[in-house]
Design a protein around this nucleic acid. Structure first.
Lengths: 408, 408
DNA sequence: CCGATTAGATTTAGCTTCCAAATCAACTAT
DNA sequence: ATAGTTGATTTGGAAGCTAAATCTAATCGG
């Protein structure tokens, strides 16, 4: 007996390559596919026909029918059947949960956001919440569980290679990720659980400020700092998924805690107010604490207010320090600030950029602000789900093609 | 015309797999190779014969001839022709240079160490020194340049993916690595230049304390701290090779500079002496500065001296802090202290291990001492050269087999 | 309307790299 | 000797390609 090889079925390299091309090509003709993948016409046509057979491609009316035609026999035209199945990307934060249903190309079909009661986070409740959110989003999209090819969930916790999160002191990480992967694998063929900042990094790499960049760090700067690190084109994870976790920040001079940029700006403003440090007659003087927010300070600084600029400088110094630490430690060529606050941090980034050369010994990373806004984790989850679907669908054996609805 | 594929020549997956097996198998018989690689007998025999033809394997007298035989037709026996070519591993430090000539299995043939005049480090002089050291070692090994298949050089500088080092403020890194790769590629088929700490990490992964470990950090703790990081089984490099460089250390509370453990112990002892802090009648009291070394302090602490233990505690605290930072940042499952001092740091490590749980939020990495001693960089250079030879030799086209001396 | 021309599709033959099974060879044990 | 065992070799495909010949569906110029 030899190591019984599985039946060849479908797993040829060419299939993979052609599918890969089709996935990001939009509508294409055979000749394009041939030059892009380097196979000959015979092979290309074979593979394309097989992909149509499986249900992953659709043949469109040929070139003449559409008018984009010059001479000779008209080309056959193809396109990914993006609606053959759906993927789900989820940002499963502590206090909110965004569920996005998208097609195979990653185009959003529905997106629903749910506010969570952060105190009700027992493992069972959270599992139920996640499932309910998925079912609700599926309903809104007019699909059912059977058509889901891949799911990716982002959680505010380290996630290791197997999709598990370590047992933290107070169990917070485990509560955030109560073995979601195992739960979902019961009915979804491809499941991926990732750290939220890592997904923000995936999003920047796919559709954001890090396209084509092989070494970068994405700094999620909301309530708490968190970082997603891409090194040599791959997500850096660590033995327990803790790479990029910012628990080390409190050991760095001038950083001291992992509290995020939004909270800090607000905190500084309120501290100043409480200490009577806001000059009389200043626009912010006498405001109630709940209107004294980071956002208010940033807006004021933008209009030239000197006192607000002081706080902006402080934030810039902090950002420079954090960027410097990440720059030194991971040596990225770019550091991207992401999260809902990112867009308002232009002045803070300006200050930080000016300070960076003095902080870093090695090459100074480019500091840029993400333009993906608050949805970057959700967007990354969709990208990651699409990516897993793309690389995984041909290796699914019988389970995969089952869900490719051939009707359309 | 299609993308003209190169002549198939030799590049079958099976050849690679069989060669990979042969490389770490020692003497083996066909059946072993078959089960290990999963190919059938026909394929195995084909590939083995081809590897013999190329000159990478040798066929030994069959099983019966050696006596290890039971029943049936005796097996053919094979072995890597470790002497078909040689590899060179070099630790090209600032003040010394170790050149090791080894066979394809990595077994050392000769090793020579040269003290360098650290002030004469102009690019041209250094290039000449490196070449001279290689030629000298080759002479000692009774080989010539033609038989060198691969070279790996470790330098005390960041090295990027292409083998280049960034231009540091004072040009030190460029002087340490004056484009050695280009120089050597003129006559060596496979050239690799790496950061020294990275090579120490390679060594620990191959023959040291990190065998089988996919996420670890090796702390080179000599004159300056430097770290080699392995994440997910691959060397972490960063955009400019700066990952693991410890320029960020001076931002960490309680670490402050990248000065290594040896220097610090010595420094603390001498500072204490200068400040008159060594108690009267203490064994170290009144010693001349040049005999007041870290080693002396460690030895004394080992014999139970309380004052020396105080310094050891200080060192342990520092090591714990550094380990904690690396643990938090890269999330390794193990941190290995390497370099000449490592072996004497058992008590320091003991102290650090006790402190670690209080320093780390995430999983506490295992802190272990390397037993590779001062030669870990040199050993890693050999491992890396062997590794590159192993993966590269079959893809060398005409240039490779040229050097496999078929005579033996 | 009819070739000539053109570009793409299909078919055919052949190559490489493998596997599976049949057959052959070299032994030992009896 | 001869049966039994274990490997080695040979033979006959099957995949998965490529390359080249041939076929098809068009345009275009008379």
């Amino acid at each position: 007996m030899s190591t019984s090889h599985p039946p060849p079925a479908l797993s040829r390299a060419s299939l993979d390559r052609l599918l890969g091309y089709a996935w990001d090509a939009g509508v294409f003709v055979s000749a394009d596919a041939m030059t892009a993948t380097g196979v000959t016409r015979s092979t290309a046509i074979d593979a394309l026909d097989e992909l149509i057979e499986i249900g992953l491609l659709r043949e469109l009316p040929n070139a003449r029918a559409v008018g984009e035609y010059r001479k000779g026999r008209p080309s056959r035209r193809f396109e990914l059947r993006a609606d053959a199945a759906i993927v789900i990307g989820m940002d499963a934060g502590r206090s909110h949960l965004t569920t996005t249903v998208a097609d195979l190309r990653g185009d959003v079909i529905t997106s629903e956001t749910l506010e969570l009661d952060a105190t009700r986070d027992s493992p069972n409740e959270r599992r139920a919440t996640v499932l309910a959110a998925i079912d609700s989003a599926l309903r809104a999209a007019g699909r059912d569980r059977d058509s889901v090819l891949a799911v990716c969930v982002g959680v505010p916790a380290p996630v290791d290679y197997h999709g598990a999160s370590p047992d933290h002191r107070d169990g917070f990480w485990r509560r955030m990720n109560p073995d979601l992967r195992t739960m979902l694998e019961e009915w979804v063929p491809i499941v991926r659980v990732e750290n939220d900042a890592s997904l923000a990094a995936v999003a920047e790499g796919a559709v954001g400020a890090a396209i084509g960049c092989r070494d970068y760090v994405v700094l999620l700067a909301g309530d708490r700092f968190g970082a997603g690190v891409v090194a040599d084109g791959r997500l850096l994870r660590g033995a327990h998924g803790g790479a990029g976790e910012m628990v080390a920040l409190d050991k760095v001079v001038g950083v001291e805690s992992a509290e995020g940029m939004g909270l800090r700006l607000t905190g500084w403003a309120r501290d100043a107010a409480a200490a009577g440090k806001i000059p009389d007659g200043h626009p912010l003087a006498g405001l109630p604490a709940d209107r004294l927010t980071g956002r208010a300070v940033l807006d004021l600084a933008r209009s030239g207010d000197a006192w607000a600029q002081g706080i902006v400088n402080r934030a810039g110094t902090l950002l420079a320090r954090i960027t410097a630490v990440f720059g030194s430690v991971y040596d990225p060529s770019r550091v991207i600030v992401a999260g809902a606050v990112a867009e308002s941090l232009d002045q803070v980034a300006e200050v930080a950029r000016a300070l960076l050369p003095g902080e870093v010994d090695l090459a100074v990373p480019e500091l840029v602000l993400s333009s993906l806004g608050a949805g970057s984790v959700a967007a990354g989850a969709v990208c990651a789900a699409v990516d897993s679907a793309r690389t995984g669908v041909l290796h699914l054996g019988g389970a995969g093609p089952r869900l490719l609805d051939r009707a359309g």
